[in-house]
Design a binder for these strands. Structure first.
Length: 780
DNA sequence: AACTAATACTTTTTT
DNA sequence: AGTATTAGTT
């Protein structure tokens, strides 16, 4: 247990919430240790002071959820009810964990070294698992697999089982296994029936096989971090009791995002003393597709008998109209506990609603709006554009680039998920732990060193026959004549390189060693040789990685954290418009929020509707609600009538969520007209919308009944022939001849240099000389 | 083994 | 339409 001297506790009696006047001195705080409670409203205060027994804090958007959590921890500490090391506080993201640490630090003054059990479910899971690894058939040094490794492993399994990977993709199996793990199901507990969804009922066996392989590799995937913990607690009562006794208080953030496994885990731990406090908002549950169970929060009272529920309904973020619009919208959901958000701020601006012709116009309008805001002195970083799906971002990026408007894409591929980062860490991992087959395989032929499929295959064969790791098999095989001289030499070089790097671990600084490895392996060289702009940024990222390593003392320490704790470094500071998905916007707030793409089929996403029916619709509605409640002062919703889906133009109707917004809180933009696009090609959404008819049931019916092809289905001035462009040809048949000018979809215009049957050599004006198939070019 | 052409896929994504 | 993976070819 971490030692915290009483001085630390004294210090903890001095919480200083941000609003507190600087005049409040440390000494004053000591005299009146409950002063920090004064900064809370009555519900918040109750949530902080109700320490014993199960407590659910239903915290609507912007009601001070994090403040309650951190103050509660501060309160526990200042009352001396527990040492920092006796408090378990779990979050879902590293970001949330970091923020909580920082805020508790502010509260009790200084860095919170003494909160070893504040972290994500997974981080805490790993920590516990390492201590008791042997009890779940792992060694304490087990590695955590990322998604790539997981898929690769499953692919191998499928191959070994002779299952057609075309028909039964490894990804699908991975999704199923993850699903089971999220529900806390070990292979033998998987219901028979569910097995049939994959490879004619082999799914469960494959899952069992996969788990066995993981143990052999001394590895755990993300799901295991919880599932194995669960198993540990269930099978070893003594271990469970130890933790039950240790954790005097348990706090959970974003409880609505928890899955069954997490719920079971929490319940086991909370059975000790029952002091569990979950904070969440059922109206912000948007991760159902990833296994989150809204039911966990809806059922809290039943799951934890005697639970107290406190609602935080006073919103400190948004103005009245925005809150009114959001509340009116979410009120359409049936499965919710129900909260009524209110604010003391004025009504503010109504939520603007505007229709557009297509996504380009949508982007253009927002670009104009943002430029205007900018002229008024609005900070760009206080503006966010929240989209449902990432493909929507493109239109905005295009527009912003032409406008020269600085923007930043938030979310996207995480730092650690980038190819070059994974490759690099794979090198470090193998250096440290040569038995890590998956990582070894990942980089064996990256950069290309002539160790192709066939070599890897013989390695696998040998490894399996001798039941040794691939690296060991490599050692053996280079002693034989098994391989041809070239790959044999390459393999030998690789092995000795790794051996040498390994010998340097103890003597060399870990960051230097890392650079050495990347250098000598030819990995950096590989990217340097590729003179593409991406290669440049990849090299930058590798530098960033080394910089990040500085924060750790050893290579091992770094690797322990890298897969769990590393995320994109969002360069703060620069004044840029934020562009992100609704999902990644949860927990953030901005003065002005733009919500494009409220189209039927996109915001209630069609797929969500198809796959999950009403509950899917409700989740989509929560997503819309999350979007609206991100805004402090201004919100604008737009929808487009035409959206390019996968290549083809499709007409779209305004989202049903627009109909559901209370009329009083929204302002429908005046018809800006279709600006010269043909005369009344579609007398529907926009025109009627703007003339005030949009709220009538008749209008809605008209919208729904409108045949999908009516109105314009293509961009004016653009001739689209739906379906096929039939002209097929052989080179001769199409009348192609040497010297003829042709057009190719990808390469543009060029001149035919040579004809070889149906293959052409064309000298393209932009792309240079290429060999193409005749059917891909047309006469220009 | 490495390139090119054909094909398949396309919601959201903490760890 | 565009990209990412796979299959086929050299």
């Amino acid at each position: 247990m971490t030692k915290i001297r009483s001085s630390a506790l004294e210090a903890s009696a001095l919480p200083s919430p941000d609003e507190e006047s600087p005049a409040t001195s440390e000494r004053a705080m000591r005299r009146r240790p409950s002063h920090y409670l004064d900064a809370l409203n009555s519900e918040q205060r109750e949530a902080v002071e109700t320490l014993d027994g199960p407590l659910l804090v239903l915290a609507g958007a912007g009601t001070g959820k994090t403040r309650v959590l951190t103050t509660r921890i501060g309160h526990i500490l200042s009352l001396g009810r527990a040492w920092p090391s006796q408090i378990l506080a779990v979050t879902f993201t590293n970001k949330a964990a970091r923020e909580m640490k920082a805020r508790i630090g502010d509260l009790i003054g200084g860095v919170v070294e003494g909160m070893p059990w504040l972290g994500t479910f997974h981080a805490i899971g790993v920590k516990i698992l390492r201590r008791h690894a042997e009890l779940v058939d792992l060694k304490p040094s087990f590695t955590v697999l990322d998604t790539d490794d997981q898929i690769r492993l499953l692919k191998q399994l499928l191959e070994a089982e002779n299952i057609d990977e075309k028909r039964w993709p490894a990804r699908a199996l991975a999704a199923m296994i993850d699903g089971w793990k999220n529900r806390g199901l070990v292979p033998k507990r998987v219901p028979e029936g569910e097995s049939f969804a994959f490879a004619n009922g082999k799914a469960r066996d494959l899952y069992a096989l996969y788990q066995r392989r993981l143990k052999e590799l001394n590895a755990a995937d993300f799901g295991d971090l919880l599932l194995e913990n669960l198993r540990l607690f269930q099978e070893h009562q003594d271990v469970l009791e130890k933790y039950q006794q240790r954790f005097l208080f348990t706090l959970v953030d974003e409880y609505q995002d928890s899955n069954v496994a997490q719920y079971l885990w929490l319940r086991l731990l909370a059975q000790g003393n029952g002091n569990i406090c979950c904070v969440g908002d059922d109206d912000q549950s948007i991760y159902g597709w990833r296994g989150a169970e809204v039911d966990n929060i809806l059922r809290f009272e039943t799951d934890f008998p005697g639970a107290k529920i406190i609602r935080l309904e006073r919103n400190y973020r948004s103005t009245g109209h925005i809150l009114g619009a959001a509340s009116g919208l979410i009120a359409h959901n049936k499965g919710r506990l129900g909260k009524t958000l209110r604010t003391d701020a004025g009504l503010g601006d109504k939520v603007a609603v505007e229709g557009c012709w297509d996504d380009e116009e949508e982007a253009r309008i927002m670009g104009e709006d943002i430029e205007q805001l900018q002229r008024q002195g609005h900070s760009l970083s206080e503006i966010a554009i929240l989209v449902r799906a990432s493909f929507q971002m493109r239109a905005f990026e295009d527009r912003f680039i032409t406008l020269g408007l600085p923007y930043r894409v938030v979310g996207g591929p995480r730092f650690y998920e980038r190819q070059e980062i994974r490759d690099a860490t794979a090198y470090f991992e193998v250096t440290l732990n040569p038995a890590n087959d998956l990582k070894f395989e990942r980089i064996a032929n990256t950069p290309r060193r002539g160790l192709g499929e066939s070599t890897l295959k013989s390695l696998h064969q040998l490894a399996r026959a001798q039941s040794v790791p691939l690296f060991q098999a490599a050692r053996l095989i280079v002693e034989t004549e098994e391989l041809k001289p070239k790959p044999r030499k390459a393999l030998l070089d690789l092995i000795s390189a790794f051996d040498r790097w390994r010998s340097l671990i103890d003597t060399m600084r870990h960051t230097e060693l890392a650079e050495l490895i990347l250098d000598e392996s030819g990995y950096t060289g590989m990217w340097q040789a590729e003179r593409s702009p991406q290669a440049q940024s990849k090299l930058e990222n590798l530098k960033e990685l080394i910089r990040f390593m500085e924060e750790f003392d050893t290579l091992a320490g770094f690797l322990e954290h890298v897969s769990l704790v590393m995320d994109a470094q969002t360069e703060e500071g620069a004044d840029r418009v934020n562009l992100m998905t609704l999902h990644s916007a949860k927990g953030l707030e901005f003065d002005t929020v733009f919500l494009p793409g409220w189209d039927e089929g996109l915001l209630p996403h069609q797929r969500s509707l198809d796959e999950a029916g009403r509950s899917g619709l409700e989740e989509e509605r929560r997503l819309a609600h999350v979007g609206l409640t991100r805004a402090r002062k201004h919100a604008k919703i737009t929808f487009a009538q035409n959206r390019r889906n996968h290549g083809t133009w499709q007409t779209a109707l305004p989202s049903r969520f627009i109909d559901e917004l209370p009329v009083d809180h929204i302002a429908v933009a005046e018809d800006k007209g279709l600006r010269g696009y043909g005369p009344s090609r579609f007398d529907s959404a926009e025109t009627l919308f703007a003339s005030g008819f949009y709220e009538t049931p008749g209008w809605r019916r008209a919208q729904r009944n409108r045949p999908p092809g009516s109105g314009a289905s293509a961009k004016p001035g653009q001739i689209t022939i739906d379906g096929t462009l039939v002209a097929s040809s052989t080179a001769e048949g199409a009348g192609l001849a040497i010297g003829m000018r042709v057009f190719h979809q990808k390469f543009g215009y060029g001149r035919v240099v040579q004809i070889d049957g149906n293959k052409l050599t064309v000298d393209f004006e932009k792309a240079g000389q290429k060999k193409v198939v005749d059917s891909f070019v047309e006469r220009a």
